[in-house]
Amino acid sequence: MKFAVLLLLGSLLACTSADDNSVLIATASSFRPALEVLAPALNDKCNTNIQISSGSTGALITQIRQGAPFDLLISADQNLSKSLANSPTNNYRLDAAFARSPMAYWQPKASAKKLTIAIANPKTAPFGRAAMQVIGQTKPDLITAANAGQAFVFVHTKAANAGYVPLPLLIAAKIPNTEFELIAEDTYSPIFLHNVRLKRNLTLDCLSDQLNALQTITMLAGFGYLPP
């Protein structure tokens, strides 16, 4: 039974202390690289410690509906966010969009192999729906990723030889602009980023203000984001 005692001690020692000042942000995967760059400045300005969890907006909203303890959602799907915020059983607050995210078609190099195109899941990710709008009636071989970030990884690891991905992910990964082309914005529904405050406190008010601040918008332009 010595091992049992060791297990108990280990369990107790492994307990990590919670940081009361931390804010847990659930973000659409396409915004994660930009948020990681923004986080230190946001931490300083709002006197907080941002922790990030990312996924497709649809999956994150499902988790929130099931009780996930996020403080702020940065969503890329306005309709889903509205339905979340309008639910009468909660006290969520949907803020105005702070950026618009362009989409690009990325094909690292022409391939003699059959073209397989990675897209985010159209049922849960706005970039997936946008990709389907662009693809239209054509029937290419599609590889459906859980979210836009995973669609990007599929092309990056050559699991797919092309993909419809958010422009900010290409810029963040320093992909040469000879490998991708921007998709005309009138061919798909625009993808706006906005935040939903899931709790009410001054830190979240501060973060919301900072995301809409001119300085943030300027920084986001470096990632390819456009004003809303």
Binding site: T16, A18, D19, L24, S29, R32, P33, Q51, I52, S53, S54, G55, Q63, A68, P69, N147, G149, Q150, F152, V153, H156, A173
Partner: peptide, 22 residues
């Protein structure tokens, strides 16, 4: 558990997360 840092982000989830972040 989802993917919540310091609470439910276990090693297998962290690997998945790290790959998504390249």
């Amino acid at each position: 558990g989802g993917n919540i840092p310091d609470k439910t982000r276990v090693v297998s989830i962290a690997i998945f997360d790290a790959v998504e972040r390249l």
